[in-house]
Computed example of a mutant assay.
Amino acid sequence: MPFISVNNHQLHYADSHPDGAPANGLTFFFIHGLGSSQNYYFPLLLYLTSQHRCITADTYGSGRSTYTDQSVSIGSIAADVIGFLDALNIPQAVVVGHSMGGLVVTLLGSEHADRVKGVVAIGPTHPSETLASVMRKRSETAAESGMESLANSIPYQATGSTASPLASSFIRELVLGQNPKGYAALCQAIANAPTIDYSAIQVPFLLIAGEEDKSASLEGCQYIFSRVSSANKKMEVLPQVGHWHCIEAPDTVGKTIAEFVKASF
């Protein structure tokens, strides 16, 4: 797994097809959520990599992309994605984002239509004062006490009723492995998320929601979905799934994305 230099920082990533997408295949770029890493997506990639190029990256300040005290925002993460595509000479990609990454991919779809082939939003968070308040408190907790208390609560409070102990263990490891300063900075990025013009999204759009998601509620997901202008859009609600969709139900998420792509391109 290599590093790439984008916008004055080093980002860690994996690329299923470094020499380019297979014939008639697409390129996917995956953006994970808060407290996560590129590894969040690995359980579902097998449904895509036989036909498509899949690039997964650790967002600046997360995972193995070292936090170096640079400012970070939803806009700067989106700029990193564009920088990534430029560096790898990729004209367009289907962008896939979970939670915080859902903010990023909807922003990309609304403001960088020339670089976005399609948008897949998994449990996307919708900016609100309630969300901002929660993120400011999380930021304070991480900065003052580190990641352990969050790692001991998030895997159990943010998952659905059928989440396995193995899923919770994986989530705990993702959260516990975060740099507290990087995590706190990303909490602030979410708290200060911009207003996104969902109506500007006109490419194929798939929204995957969790029936039991308390972090990205069905109401918020429906708000986003109803305002997307794309003539080709679909919303899939996963029963008994919470906020960590790709770990709780990787087979369902992988098949849902693969089927949508097959029908749309």
Rank of each mutant, 00 (worst) to 15 (best):
L103W: 00
G146R: 06
N24T: 12
S36T: 06
Q51M: 13
Y13L: 08
T125K: 01
Y47I: 12
M235W: 00
Q92E: 11
H126Q: 03
A249K: 12
S149D: 12
L11N: 03
K181F: 12
E111V: 06
F205W: 14
C246E: 09
Y47K: 15
Q70H: 13
Y223M: 03
M135V: 06
F42K: 15
P194C: 13
I196A: 01
A263D: 14
G61E: 04
P180T: 15
L206Q: 06
D197R: 12
K234M: 15
E129N: 12
R227T: 01
G102N: 03
A184V: 10
L46R: 15
P2D: 14
A185T: 02
S16Y: 01
G146M: 09
F260Y: 15
P22D: 04
E248K: 02
E259P: 10
S153T: 15
Q51I: 11
A79C: 03
A249N: 04
A79K: 09
G210A: 00
E129P: 08
A78D: 09
F260T: 12
V175H: 02
P18F: 07
L26P: 00
T252N: 06
E211F: 06
E148T: 15
A143R: 13
R138H: 05
T106F: 04
M135I: 02
L44W: 07
Y183P: 04
A200G: 02
K137L: 14
Y13F: 12
L26T: 06
I31E: 04
S73L: 07
R115A: 13
S229D: 09
N192K: 07
E129V: 10
L44R: 05
A132N: 14
